[in-house]
Computed example of a mutant assay.
Amino acid sequence: MSGAELLGPQEVSRIREEIASAVLGATDGLAESLDSDPEEYLRLLAAARVGAEESSRLLREAVQGARSAGHSWDTVGGLLGVSRQAAQQRFSSKAPSATPEPGVPGGPEHRVISPVTAFDEMAELEAAARDGWHLVGYGPFHLVVEASDLVWKHRRVFGAQRRRLKAEGWTQVGPGSFPWRYYKRPVAPEPT
C-alpha cells in the first residue's frame, strides 16, 4: 500500500499548498519582499527549516500512532516508500521504554491512558490522580497508571531540577525523556 492509495491528488495538493502558505505567511511580508530584498531569503530559509522540523515531528508522531494502533512496520514502510527495516530503524524509539512490566498477580491494578499528547497528558493525569491513580510508566501517546489509596500530584518539568524536587518529596517516574521528566508525590491528607 502506498500513500497515493490513501490520499487523492487534490488532498496531496492541498496539504502541499497549506504547508507552503504557512511557511511564506509566517513572517509578515515575506513573500512580497523576496523580489526586492535578497536578505529575505534567509528569513524564508529559517521559516522553511521550522516547517520541516514540525513536519518531521508530525511524521514521527503519526508513525508512533500507527504502530500503537497495531499497524505493522511493513505497512508503515510501504506508506513511506521505504523498507520495513528502514522505517523501523528511523522511527523506532531510541530511548528505553518507561512502561513498567505488567503488574504482579494480586498486586495493584494498572491502567493505560491513551491516546494522550503533550497538550493533554497533564490534565489526564490530574483527573486520574483525583481518583487514586499515579503514574508508573509512559510511552508514545500513552500513560501507565497504578491504583492507590492515596491522592497523587504529578509534575512534568524541563531540565534538571532533580535535587530540588527530591528534597521536596517528589519521585521521578521512569528514566526521563527529552525534553522533560515526570515526577509524582502523594498529596498530604486534609487535616480533620
Rank of each mutant, 00 (worst) to 15 (best):
residue 41 Y to I: 07
residue 43 R to V: 15
residue 43 R to G: 01
residue 43 R to A: 07
residue 44 L to A: 07
residue 46 A to I: 06
residue 48 A to M: 07
residue 48 A to W: 02
residue 49 R to Y: 10
residue 50 V to E: 08
residue 50 V to P: 00
residue 51 G to Y: 01
residue 51 G to I: 04
residue 52 A to K: 08
residue 52 A to C: 06
residue 53 E to M: 12
residue 54 E to N: 07
residue 54 E to D: 14
residue 58 L to S: 07
residue 58 L to F: 13
residue 59 L to E: 09
residue 59 L to V: 08
residue 59 L to Y: 05
residue 60 R to P: 03
residue 61 E to M: 10
residue 62 A to P: 03
residue 63 V to L: 06
residue 63 V to F: 07
residue 64 Q to S: 11
residue 67 R to K: 12
residue 67 R to E: 01
residue 68 S to E: 10
residue 69 A to H: 10
residue 69 A to V: 02
residue 71 H to F: 08
residue 71 H to I: 00
residue 72 S to Q: 04
residue 73 W to S: 05
residue 75 T to M: 01
residue 75 T to G: 00
residue 77 G to K: 06
residue 77 G to N: 11
residue 77 G to A: 12
residue 78 G to M: 00
residue 79 L to M: 11
residue 79 L to Y: 06
residue 80 L to W: 05
residue 81 G to Q: 09
residue 81 G to N: 05
residue 83 S to W: 05
residue 83 S to M: 10
residue 83 S to D: 07
residue 85 Q to I: 10
residue 87 A to M: 15
residue 89 Q to K: 12
residue 89 Q to W: 10
residue 89 Q to M: 10
residue 92 S to C: 05
residue 92 S to A: 14
residue 96 P to N: 04
residue 97 S to K: 02
residue 100 P to I: 03
residue 100 P to Y: 00
residue 102 P to A: 04
residue 103 G to Q: 03
residue 103 G to T: 09
residue 103 G to E: 06
residue 104 V to M: 09
residue 104 V to I: 13
residue 105 P to V: 09
residue 105 P to S: 11
residue 105 P to I: 04
residue 107 G to I: 14
residue 107 G to R: 10
residue 107 G to Y: 11
residue 108 P to G: 09
residue 111 R to W: 04
residue 112 V to Q: 06
residue 112 V to N: 05
residue 112 V to D: 13
residue 113 I to D: 07
residue 114 S to V: 13
residue 115 P to K: 02
residue 115 P to C: 08
residue 116 V to K: 14
residue 117 T to Q: 05
residue 117 T to L: 06
residue 118 A to E: 14
residue 119 F to S: 15
residue 121 E to G: 01
residue 121 E to T: 01
residue 123 A to N: 11
residue 123 A to L: 12
residue 125 L to C: 08
residue 126 E to Y: 12
residue 127 A to Q: 13
residue 128 A to S: 10
residue 128 A to D: 05
residue 128 A to H: 02
residue 129 A to V: 04
residue 130 R to F: 11
residue 130 R to E: 10
residue 131 D to H: 08
residue 133 W to Y: 12
residue 134 H to K: 06
residue 135 L to Q: 00
residue 137 G to W: 02
residue 137 G to N: 02
residue 137 G to E: 00
residue 138 Y to E: 00
residue 139 G to R: 02
residue 140 P to H: 11
residue 141 F to D: 08
residue 146 E to N: 07
residue 146 E to H: 04
residue 147 A to I: 10
residue 148 S to N: 15
residue 148 S to R: 07
residue 149 D to Y: 10
residue 152 W to L: 09
residue 154 H to I: 12
residue 155 R to F: 10
residue 156 R to C: 11
residue 157 V to W: 03
residue 158 F to I: 13
residue 158 F to K: 11
residue 158 F to V: 12
residue 159 G to I: 15
residue 160 A to W: 13
residue 161 Q to F: 08
residue 162 R to A: 15
residue 162 R to C: 02
residue 163 R to K: 12
residue 164 R to S: 15
residue 164 R to M: 09
residue 166 K to L: 13
residue 167 A to Q: 13
residue 167 A to E: 14
residue 169 G to S: 09
residue 169 G to Q: 05
residue 171 T to L: 12
residue 171 T to Y: 00
residue 171 T to K: 09
residue 172 Q to F: 01
residue 172 Q to P: 03
residue 173 V to E: 00
residue 174 G to A: 08
residue 174 G to C: 03
residue 175 P to M: 05
residue 175 P to G: 09
residue 176 G to F: 08
residue 177 S to W: 12
residue 182 Y to K: 09
residue 183 Y to N: 03
residue 185 R to K: 15
residue 185 R to P: 03
residue 186 P to S: 12
residue 187 V to E: 15
residue 187 V to W: 05
